[in-house]
Write a protein that binds this DNA or RNA. Sequence first.
DNA 1: CCTACCGATCGGTAGG
DNA 2: CCTACCGATCGGTAGG
Lengths: 219, 219
Amino acid sequence: MLRLMQTSHEAVIVKKRGRGRPPKSADERNESMRRGELVKVAAQLFRQRGFHGTSTRDIAAAAGMQSGSIFYFFESKEAILHAVMQDGMTQAAVSQDAALQALGARANGVERLSALVRNHLQIMVGGESDFIPVMLYEWRLLSDAQRMEVSAQKDAYEAQWMPALQALHRTGKLKARPEIARLLIFGALNWTAQWFTEGRGLTLDELTEQALALFIGER
Amino acid sequence: MLRLMQTSHEAVIVKKRGRGRPPKSADERNESMRRGELVKVAAQLFRQRGFHGTSTRDIAAAAGMQSGSIFYFFESKEAILHAVMQDGMTQAAVSQDAALQALGARANGVERLSALVRNHLQIMVGGESDFIPVMLYEWRLLSDAQRMEVSAQKDAYEAQWMPALQALHRTGKLKARPEIARLLIFGALNWTAQWFTEGRGLTLDELTEQALALFIGER
DNA sequence: CCTACCGATCGGTAGG
DNA sequence: CCTACCGATCGGTAGG
């Protein structure tokens, strides 16, 4: 796990595939690609069957590997779950940043909340990503240290909702306290993963519209 | 599983512990009590550690039995989960009926929704029952037949919300369509199991108040 | 209900 | 990355 590198003046301990060093060689590029594929198929399986309902053999087979090979890329099954959640939160943050950027600085509270709700629903039920649903429903399986890491990403993601909610509260369109509203709203949106199927009676835009109507009485 | 009883004129097949026959003898009373205890401790463990995170040995130990003895009462681990959900829905329905009865017939939409929200939150986070949280988060682990049975109970429970939501929609206090509002509202309330801890900053009544404020702009 | 046990599966590892 | 394998755990059962 640790590699000892001898330089002219000192001994330096470098973590394999550590954060600070971008992949360089062709080998390393391939390795990180395969790793990413594993995370992706694991996310799909975890979403469909749950973490405990998916064996490491299932993941390996779905990625076209032998069962033991997974542990060349991850030190444990739990580490795969952690990676799924980290990648998912990173994706979600990127997507949310883009949605807010597209709005411009002069957007009002209704427009901002509308964009945030729409983006979050897209992630939850849009079928493009399995990461967030897994994160939400397998949360407790992480170790304390892992949970703290992902929590930090989640907190940053959710914090971006507060300006919009506070603005809406000030103008009287949101009657609940912004902090509590945030928690209840995320509940309502996250739960859609349980019942919403795209194209069955309700489109994503209509769902967004109904959610806005429920929370602030307009869209 | 089946017991053959010989009467004077015919052979009758009677299901052991079938629905139609209430327990009679002292043995049967004890047996159904022990069964109920098992369901209760299983609900606690399932809520804390999840279905897959709980072994049948854990359940047996918590009930003061040997590991094999559980299968005298239940034919499988899955059957215990099913029983947890059935008992939970039955409890929830009783509690909800009582809450609605207490209101009287002249209650308006706001009062009705308020009572329903308060009762549901009480079940979710009140600490008295572990059944509903288990039901909501381990839903997909049931077999199709089991899920259909519990679904019927759940549908009846949720149907009782519709008159209140429709009345509020008519008077313009609820802006979203009642059917979609119901789904989003249950999401918001069910999700509280993830973040709400009684007595930490927010009481159950305050939470009810905030939820009502969010959904219909008043309490 | 208990005792004693089985077969299957699972996460993970050594060595290449 | 693969092969070959291990120890632990698990749901469930036979027989009393």
